[in-house]
Nucleic acid binder design. Structure first.
Lengths: 258, 258
DNA sequence: CAGTGGTCTAGACCACATT
DNA sequence: ATGTGGTCTAGACCACTGT
């Protein structure tokens, strides 16, 4: 690729100018996804700057999520993550009746091999926000189901469900494998016919723990979706807190104009 | 605040250990939102490290979005952004009939002073994704409405709407101020009664241009919402591409269980 | 003015991946 | 063995903020 020069008259510091030239090369398609950037040594020679200056330029692009550094190999233009579209019908009863949990139903549609691991089930007192969403009283406890989802062996989502212990205890919901159709099918077995869900969507940078579990590189935000399930009596019967690798997802919702 | 020491036996490098100690102090509440962190000089003295090492620890926290550096003043624990909840009824007809555009209706409910600026209107050939969403033919052009939204004088969202030129031209939609109820009210005036919207939600790090327009510090992702409006004939009549400062928003959607 | 963070230099040693 | 990025040192000068 063709590198430019540093303009001392430019009001931007040299490292930003270098970053801008690399960014432009990516935007123009001169550097494509998977291509290696010039090494730090090449940048220091070409621009006649110290190595830390070249590194700072690359750091800029890393925090923008444009490139990924691989120790010992080089810095590469990020590959676009395979996108999973989550349609608003993903919790439709037809999927449960077909014996599939929502995640597996979606994955199959996309032709992706889906797995679930790191399943942990426990009972505990709820955090304040969960307690409020489930409209529980002081002293009530909740069943906690934590798990991680993988698509083609890459972790893409961690999720924690909270259900009133009073509903879930002694049912298959408290087992690691709740059976065909997932916990929503079991809730309906137990007489809690589902009416609707409310999803609250935000985005933020991941915590260190989330970065590890989702194997996220620098500069990748997460989508946080908190879903509350309501049965036909209007009672909230589950809160599910999910953290998704943002570039891997598009969430789709249909909103009536009334 | 109380600083610890560096453990040479720890497998983490010193700068990560320093970052972890500062992060813990924030998590424990020893450092609260708005508090100043120890200065780089204080960190280098306390831990007996070079200044770049102390800076790297702080850089870590900045890209996590935990702290914000202010030149000449110090590094501060980030203040939580005032959250705007966007309910799924925000495009309800009742708001339009009350003469309010969606953004202003939402803002008023939250007790926030809302403004719109940087309004630009033009006509242009559509980008491929817009053309596809609006189901346009080759050669069709679109009306482009670009603007920025502010809440209490802080920019929180930039938006670009695309409408088929055939529909919008010669109507108030092509004016900077389309009148009471916004462009959706004008679409309905023109016989395009709105039926529903489809919103596609993703998150990513902002581009440099978006960082400037939204005045975002380091480590803050954006929520990208692409909304397509359909009229009662099933025709897509508008695509609106919005970029929002992620920490300032919670998007809320209701999903039927069917 | 003193104190803060922003940028830069010119080295050094290390860990990792490839040949 | 070579080339890559990761970490660190010990300085330097600059720009911004406050008193």
């Amino acid at each position: 690729m063709q590198l430019g020069t540093i303009d001392r008259g430019d009001d931007r510091p040299p490292y930003r100018q270098i970053a801008a030239q690399l960014r432009d090369a990516i935007d123009r398609g001169e550097l494509r996804a998977g291509d290696r950037l010039p090494s730090e040594a090449e940048l220091t020679r070409h621009y006649s700057v110290a190595r830390m200056t070249a590194r700072q330029a690359i750091q800029e692009l890393r925090t923008e999520g444009l490139v990924v550094a691989e120790h010992g190999r080089g810095v590469f233009v990020r590959l676009p993550a395979p996108v999973r579209r989550l349609a608003s019908d993903r919790f439709a009863r037809k999927h449960r009746e077909a014996g599939q949990a929502a995640f597996l139903a979606e994955a199959e549609k996309a032709g992706v091999r889906a797995q679930v691991d790191q399943i942990e089930v426990s009972t505990a007192p709820p955090a304040p926000d969960v307690r409020e969403r489930l409209r529980l009283d002081d002293g009530d406890s909740v069943l906690v189901r934590s798990r991680r989802y993988l698509a083609d062996d890459r972790p893409i989502e961690v999720a924690v469900s909270y259900l009133p212990a009073e509903i879930a205890e002694g049912t298959p919901i408290a087992e690691a494998n709740p059976g065909p159709g997932g916990i929503y099918a079991r809730l309906e077995d137990a007489g809690h016919t589902l009416d609707h869900f409310v999803e609250e969507v935000t985005a933020r940078m991941p915590t260190g723990d989330e970065r590890r579990r989702l194997e996220l590189p620098d500069g990748v935000p997460v989508l946080v979706v908190v879903r509350t399930a309501f049965d036909t009596t209007g009672r909230p019967v589950e809160v599910c807190d999910t953290v998704k690798a943002a570039p891997a997802y598009v969430l789709e919702y249909e909103v009536p104009a009334r």
